[in-house]
Every structure is written in C-alpha cells, then in structure tokens.
Design a protein around this nucleic acid. Structure first.
Lengths: 118, 118
DNA sequence: TCCATGTTTCGATGATCCTTTGAATATCAA
DNA sequence: TTGATATTCAAAGGATCATCGAAACATGGA
C-alpha cells in the first residue's frame, strides 16, 4: 500500500455511511452482503448505497461478485490490514510508544494466538 | 476512541497535505515542529498550513505548545494508536485473517520487542 | 415474451472542503 | 514605542462530494 492508496482508503473511511458499510461487510465475513441488504442495514436508499459501494470498491476496500440478481460486496481484508500496516509503518519510526498500545488492542481480538515472541 | 472520533481522524488523514504533515510530525517525535518549519517541509503557505494544522488538532491528532514566537505542533501518539486500535477492533470480529498480516507489519518496526506470546 | 426484482447510472441540487488573499494577533528585540 | 517575525483569522472563489428521483440495465421466473 502506497501513499496514494492510503489516501484513497482514508477518504473512503471518512464518511459516515461508508464507515458503517465497511463495518457491516467486515462482520459479514467472506460471504459478503448483497447491495440491497446493505442498504437496509445502513438505512439508506438503493442509489445512495450504490454510490458509496462504488467508492469503497474504487478505494480497494471491497470487491464484488454477482449472484443471481444480487451483487455481493465483500470486504477486502488484505487492503484493510494494509492500511493498518501503512499507519504503523508511518508512525513507528523511532517511536515505539505509538505501536505498543496497538499491540494491546491486537491481543483483544484473539488474533495474537498465532504470535511468537520477538 | 469512538466512531465519531475515528470518523474525524479518518477525515483529517484523507487529505494530501495533512497526511504529509502527520508523517512529518510523527517522525519529528515528541519535540514536534514549528508551524513555519512544517509549512516549508510540506511546501505550502503559512496560512494554508495553519488551516490544516487546526484541522489535525481539532481531530485530536496533534497538540500545540507555544515556544517564544513559534507554535510547536506535536503528533498525538495516543490518538494515532487509538485509531489503529479502532480499525483492528472493528475488523477482527471472527476474522483473524485481517489482523494476522498486521502483526507482521508490527514486527517490522521493532515494537514487538516488548511482546509476550499469547 | 412479459413482468417483477435487484442494482446501477444520470442529472440536478445543496452542502462541504480547499486555497488564496489580506488583515489581525502575539512575541521579541532595539 | 517601533519594527520585524511567526502565526492565526476571516472572507471569497472554485472545486468536490453527498443525496435524491427517475430512468436504464441485468437477471430470473411465469
């Protein structure tokens, strides 16, 4: 993830409805959600959700696949962790006080099970 | 960090000049940088940098202190790691494939030295 | 084929944001 | 006090963005 992509991702996440949508997609998992279901869950119109989903897809944070009449949106986990990595890489240069609290946050989600001591 | 704060932080980071400024501040460390020095380094006018610094401060990503005629801006490391934590907390619910790559990113910056195995 | 469903696209409107300019404020030195 | 330096503030412009409604497109079933 370069600066250009990070900028696009930050812009995509800086909007109320889109942040809501990303959270929906992330919790929905790899199966994703149909556009209509997202619109219902987010409480916005079909055309409005379509507008925001397009933004998220263009920012690389979501991918799509068609399934019958529905179009399914899936969170791009690699892009999200890439953004996290970008923030960290940028923030840690000689200042571990930035990342150390993040380690605590990490351990809250059970993902540290696979970790090895440094 | 709640959703409102995260939204403000994402908005602050989604602008070219401001992202550049945050990177400058982060690498500058706790000593910070004067407004004028930031303007020079970022290549923008004094009033423009002032505008963006105000945005960053209001988003909680930077703090200020006066030093003689200069006003020194300092990155708020707690807010930055809080944003990282917000992203992670949101993204990991049942999907460790999001956070696991972030662990790799973490280990690149030397901050994992303090870590314990889970 | 015809119709219903799900989604996107287009055009218009109002809101928000970024930049610039010039004036105002604060600090220090002479 | 006067002048110089450092920064902020306020107003105006041009650009970008979000929302809505209507129309268009794609798919599947009768």
């Amino acid at each position: 993830m370069d600066e250009r992509q990070a900028l696009a991702a930050f812009a995509a996440l800086s909007q109320d409805t889109r942040l809501k949508i990303i959270r929906l997609l992330v919790t929905a998992g790899p199966e994703g959600m149909a556009s209509g279901a997202i619109a219902d869950a987010a409480g916005v119109s079909a055309s409005n959700v379509s507008f925001h989903l397009k933004e998220l897809a263009q920012a690389g944070l979501a991918t799509t696949r068609r399934e019958a009449r529905s179009i399914i949106y899936v969170a791009d986990y690699a892009a999200l962790s890439g953004l996290i990595a970008f923030l960290m890489r940028d923030c840690c240069q000689g200042h571990p006080e930035v990342c150390t609290p993040a380690i605590t946050a990490l351990s809250e989600c059970g993902c540290t099970a696979a970790m090895e001591p440094a």
